[in-house]
Each structure stands twice: as C-alpha cells, then as structure tokens.
C-alpha cells in the first residue's frame, strides 16, 4: 500500500479551506513525519499538535527542528497525562 503523496501546504491553500479541513490537511502532512519518529504514538501526538495554531503548524512542517521540539514537548505532556490516569 503506497502512502498518499501531498503537495506542500501553502497559507493560501489553507485559507481556501474550512477550519476542520485545514486541520485535516495539516494532519495528513504532519502524521507521516511524526510517524517516522514515534510510530506507536504518532496518532496521539499528531492529535495534540493539531491543537496548535495553523500558522505555527505550517512553520513546523517546514522546519524539522521546530517539529522535533514540539513532538518532544507533546511526548512529555502525554506521559505526564498518562501517569495521572
């Protein structure tokens, strides 16, 4: 099964979409990147990161360093959350 290939996301593409479509478009691009780092938790981490502003998410898609930093933050929050469950 071949992964879907998406063209890079631009601010104008996003602006033309509805809010929930915007998150979907970002999520579809974010997920494979996160999945490469944390296969098992990719769905949850992507879900967490989608709560961030779209403008910041766009920057993260273009900057592996920013993305890695946010993924690390999300992981820590997730572990903390799971520890309190």
């Amino acid at each position: 099964r071949e992964p879907a290939v998406y063209e890079p996301l631009s601010a104008s593409m996003l602006a033309a979409a509805l809010p929930h479509e915007q998150k979907q478009m970002i999520g579809e691009r974010l997920y494979p990147l996160i999945s490469a780092l944390h296969t098992q938790l990719a769905g949850k981490i992507t879900g967490m990161l989608l709560e961030i502003d779209n403008s910041e998410l766009l920057l993260m898609l273009e900057s592996p360093e920013s993305l890695n930093a946010k993924v690390q933050e999300a992981l820590e929050v997730l572990q903390e959350h799971q520890a309190t469950e």
């Binding site: 879907a4 929930h20 579809e28 974010l30 769905g43 992507t46 989608l50 709560e51 959350h81």
Partner: peptide, 26 residues
C-alpha cells in the same frame, strides 16, 4: 484506573476525518 481508556488526546488517523476540534467556533 486501568489506563486503557484514555480519552485525551484525540488521535489523528490519516484518511479519517479529524474530529478532535469540537470547540472551534463557526
């Protein structure tokens, strides 16, 4: 608590409509 039913965070699945944002104002 058995930790098997953690409702947060909402999980994103590729190709599945994202439902994690129920609090977006129209």
């Amino acid at each position: 608590s058995n930790g098997s039913s953690v409702s947060w965070p909402p999980e994103f699945h590729p190709g599945v409509p994202w439902k994690g944002l129920q609090n977006i104002d129209p």
